[in-house]
Design a protein around this nucleic acid. Structure first.
Lengths: 202, 202, 202, 202
DNA sequence: CTCTAAACGAGACGGTACGTCGAGTCTTCTA
DNA sequence: TAGAAGACTCGACGTACCGTCTCGTTTAGAG
């Protein structure tokens, strides 16, 4: 008679519950609240109410609202890290960027990420966690792929992969965070084309 | 017949003050608070207290905290829009990006802008205003410069200037908003070099 | 703001209007607002909006919200002072009290009067006006009738009519203002019976 | 050896204090404010400031300003209910009324009660509480005394004690709430005399 | 018949109070 | 003893109405 999703207010007894169980419930509630209502409505109070945990417990384990939100995010979304390498760096980059565009534009998780990044601008705690657990690994993956391409002689020797990452993914984040222009597949393709071939004319 | 003159001007009773004067004070206070304490500590209440205006007045003139912050920002910073055109597109872009990097890294205004962009992620009001009054005009300026370069035959015909903007300034915003990597002059130079010459090898 | 059943918000030109016209409009609006919404919702702001007058004009003519309300009351209700004298003091008092009970219980004006009296407890301005224009004249009327009855030998010589008024109308106001017991015709009749015949037993 | 009259604004930590302690402080502050400044200046905000409690706490425990004022009143004044019965109903009523007149005329509590009754005219919450906790018990006491007198044969059989109460105490409240005439000892005596002996002449 | 002073409406302003929300802290109770 | 319950302070929010004051307009009345 267990294993329910608990649509009820998660009323429990007053005493102690196993830490693991509490944690699980909290993360589930945090993730759901975040993906459903967004970061603006994401509140420690609401997470406590939804999870059946007490606020004090949340304060004990998560140093800030941002940290809780990020944990909730990963609990709901999962890592999803992959960077297939076919040997064709142009194709690989384009594929990867198109997947990224799709993720950000068409999924709840993608729509929430800008809000997390936004909140991190005034929350150093979240900023550090976001870099450590989100952006750094993804950046590393791309850098590795670019390094491999360099070794294969597909990229110029003097190119810094870190800069390239900013000119591809950073360009996407730009359109995501400051939406003057739409984030499209064509955009993703143009990014790779521009950068590989250069836009200058001799 | 006591027509007393009462030359003191500090007789600010309860009644109305000229709207312009109040506005000026408010914007000054808002700008100062924003640049001094940052967006996290930026509060309508504090702006009211600092400016001597009442909260109601602020609510009447500014629809949201974000709108007030942005107005305060521009009041303190000024427009500062310029894009010198020397005919050498590479040099112009590099100069412009280096100035941008300097602004964002070394000035209070630059340090605040990411916070405004961050807040805009959960404040549609501010998001719209930011696009309209900040990012769009700046983007337009860069696009125009690139168009001119295209007409002069310095850029490939099939290049979309809008995409280029994201690959230059967007890359900088990326490092600003998700600071995995530092924002340096070398970075600015590499951006232009990569993009103009291309990073691929035949 | 408040969308009354008034078809238009009484939009006029901006300049000076005849004082009499303004006064008339204001009193009409005040009376209607008072009888419709009660004293709790009676606001100078609303009267101004409903009447098309500016708040400053109201402040100029009426020293307090209570004064305005009372003027509005009389404008809507009228004086309605009468104390028929048939020679039969018992019948006259009973008739008068029954009319009073009916007025207070079954009309909007009656339902508002307790609120005015209530407000007067913390508004000396209104308290004085209420005595002067409402209670004193009514009390005087009753006292006169009782004096006449005394002269006709219908009442004991040593009876103070002022006290009798409190034991008749005052008793009604008591049930009106502190409604532990209902205000009924039977009550009105019992008041007169008790007082004329006495309740003691030799 | 403290005798400190609390000059400090009751600075406490941020966490929880025992509810009982807070309640006590609040009631003390409410009672004092009410008796000192009267109902017109009685404000939830001021009670909070005086008691060192936060407004939120007051809103949690008291549904309205009226309810808080009444609780403060009883906390400061105490119940003080008594109706001595000597067997001489005339003397007992007179004594009781004189005591009431004295209370209302010469004490801070008495001067506040009309304001509470006044506020109750537009605050159903307070109206109910006032009836329940103030007027009804006092009325019941008087009714019981009158019933006893009836049983002893001192009053006519057909007299309704409830009506008598309105013709004695109600008359006093009348002079209290609509002060056309003064509230004096002579008045109190005349009330009993009139009613017991009757004012009519055969 | 014109000119001016008074009165008006519009509405912004500072201020007090309201009632609410969320954050973070603290105490007491329970499993 | 960890967790839950829940009450508390604090800061901020957005709103209502108050009484005051400025501004521009209109009209009545003086010249």
């Amino acid at each position: 008679m267990v294993t329910q999703q608990a649509p009820e207010p998660a009323r429990r007894g007053r005493g102690r519950r196993p830490a693991a169980e509490v944690r699980r419930e909290v993360l589930r509630a945090a993730g759901e609240l975040l993906l459903t209502e967004g970061m603006a409505a994401f509140t420690i109070e609401k997470v406590a109410a939804l999870s059946g945990a007490s606020r004090v417990t949340l304060y004990k384990w998560w140093p800030s609202k941002g940290a809780l939100a990020l944990d909730g995010y990963f609990d709901a979304v999962g890592p999803t890290l992959a960077f297939p390498d076919t040997g064709d760096i142009a194709a690989d980059l384009t594929a990867q960027l198109r997947a990224f565009v799709h993720l950000m534009r068409d999924t709840r998780a993608g729509r929430v990420m800008p809000e997390l990044i936004g909140h991190a601008q005034t929350d150093p705690e979240l900023s550090a966690l976001l870099r450590e657990r989100y952006s750094a690994p993804r950046r590393a993956l791309a850098v590795e792929a670019l390094e491999r391409a360099k070794e294969r002689g597909r990229l110029r020797e003097d190119v810094d992969p870190e800069v390239v990452v900013d000119q591809l993914w950073g360009a996407c984040y730009h359109r995501l965070l400051i939406p003057d222009q739409p984030l499209t597949d064509e955009f993703a393709e143009a990014l790779v084309r521009n950068l590989l071939a250069g836009i200058g004319r001799p």
